[in-house]
């Protein structure tokens, strides 16, 4: 009986923990990351993932001409910096926050609409003696209402 209960708890935790991580990620995106978009209007989309140091996420999005955008990347992973770069369809790197002390926001506008790739990477913390840490990384977009 005790053994069955133990197994039930293990299996339940296995299903419940990722769900709990997702919910915490949403809460983090909503409370912390959305504020970074101000004074831009959040587009309402929600992109967040649990990443470990050294891991990458990619996002593809069309950005439209004559619009002003803000990208906000927020993460809660120990002391790790989050690098993000923007790459065009010709594989040219248009922006990398490494050159701006890993700032978490970037404001830009476009002369013509483009499909761009955003690559986000959680860098390994300088203190490599510790186990790699994981946490929520949220990517959010804002635009200026005209």
């Amino acid at each position: 009986m005790k053994r069955s209960l133990f197994i039930f708890i293990i299996v339940a935790l296995f299903f419940a923990l990722p769900q709990s991580g997702k919910s915490q990620c949403k809460g983090y995106a909503k409370k912390i990351c959305k504020a970074e978009l101000s004074p831009f209007t959040h587009d309402g989309n929600y992109h967040a993932a649990i990443l470990t140091e050294g891991e990458e996420a990619e996002l593809y999005k069309t950005f439209y001409s004559d619009q002003e955008y803000r990208i906000a990347i927020c993460g809660a992973i120990g002391q790790s910096n989050i690098e993000f770069k923007i790459v065009d369809a010709h594989r040219n790197e248009l922006y990398n926050n490494r050159n701006e002390d890993y700032t978490n926001i970037w404001d830009f506008k476009l002369d013509s609409s483009q499909q761009l790739k955003l690559v986000v990477k959680v860098l390994k913390a300088e203190d490599e003696t510790e186990e790699p840490q994981s946490g929520c990384v949220a990517i959010m977009f804002g635009f200026k209402v005209k």
Binding site: D43, G44, N45, L51, E55, L59, Y60, K61
Partner: peptide, 15 residues
Amino acid sequence: NQAKQIFYSMPSPLE
């Protein structure tokens, strides 16, 4: 393939 997660971000109804 190196990316752990890939997002395709469509314009939201608001955008």
